[in-house]
């Protein structure tokens, strides 16, 4: 098969790199959600222990 012309090949290459980027971003988002949960729990714990100190 002959090589694709640059303009259509460019779209495929761009699509592949975008897929990769999207996967990384989704992964970071998943970790981000976990960190968010961590923050919430820590805040809760902080509030409770502060109440107890008073």
């Amino acid at each position: 098969m002959p090589a694709l012309p640059l303009e259509s090949a460019g779209a495929y290459v761009a699509a592949a790199y975008i897929v990769f980027l999207a996967l990384v971003v989704i992964y970071v988002a998943i970790i981000g959600r976990k960190v968010g949960r961590l923050e919430r729990e820590l805040t809760e714990l902080d509030d409770v222990t502060r109440d107890r100190e008073r």
């Binding site: 090589a3 694709l4 640059l6 090949a9 460019g10 495929y12 290459v13 592949a16 790199y17």
Partner: peptide, 12 residues
């Protein structure tokens, strides 16, 4: 042979 499309190789 592959032209520009071969750039996917470096990712895939």
């Amino acid at each position: 042979d592959q032209g520009f499309i071969q750039k996917i190789f470096y990712l895939h």
